[in-house]
Simulated scan of single mutants.
Amino acid sequence: MHTYRAVIDVIARVLAALDAHESGRLPPNEADAHFDEFNEQRIRIYGYLAMIAPQAVMDAQDKLIDNLLLVAHGNAKYEWEKVRENALAMLNAVRIDVGIDKSPISYNGEL
C-alpha cells in the first residue's frame, strides 16, 4: 500500500505542475524543473511497482505516464479529461489489487 501511495504522490505533483503551466500560472523554466524531478521519480516508481504490482496496474500506470511524457515533451496536447480517465483506470487497477473494492470508481463531476 505504501508503494501505491508514493506513486500517487509523484503523479499528483506532476499533474499540479501541468495544470499550473497550462493555465499560465507556472513559467516554462519552472515547469521544466518540475518535469525533471518527475522524470527521475517516474523511473524510481516504475521499479517499485514492478516489484509488487500485477500486470494490470503496470499497464494502467504505463498508459498514464506515457501520456504525461508526451504532453511534457510537447508531442501531445494536455487534455485533463484524458489524464483523468487514465488516472482513474490506474486507481481502479490498484483498488482491485489491494482488495479494497473491486467495483470501479468513476468521475461524476461536471468539469
Rank of each mutant, 00 (worst) to 15 (best):
L26V: 05
I105P: 00
A56N: 08
A6K: 09
I52E: 09
V14G: 01
G74T: 00
V10D: 08
L68A: 07
E81D: 13
L69I: 15
V71P: 06
P54N: 11
D62N: 10
A17P: 02
R25M: 14
M1L: 04
E22L: 08
A53N: 06
S23E: 14
A87Q: 09
A17R: 03
D19Y: 04
V14S: 08
H21I: 02
I100D: 06
F38W: 10
K82V: 15
F38Q: 01
L68H: 04
P28A: 12
E81W: 06
G74D: 00
R84L: 13
E81V: 11
E79W: 00
I65V: 15
W80M: 11
H73E: 11
L88W: 01
N108R: 15
E40Q: 09
E37S: 15
V83W: 05
D59C: 03
P28V: 02
A76H: 10
R44P: 00
P27T: 02
N29Q: 12
V83S: 08
I52P: 00
N67H: 12
D97C: 07
G109N: 05
A33L: 14
R44A: 07
G74I: 05
V83G: 02
A53R: 03
L88R: 09
E85C: 02
A56R: 11
N108A: 14
I8N: 14
D9I: 07
H34E: 14
Y107A: 10
D62E: 11
S103W: 02
E79C: 01
M58W: 00
H21D: 02
H34V: 01
P28G: 06
A76G: 05
V98R: 12
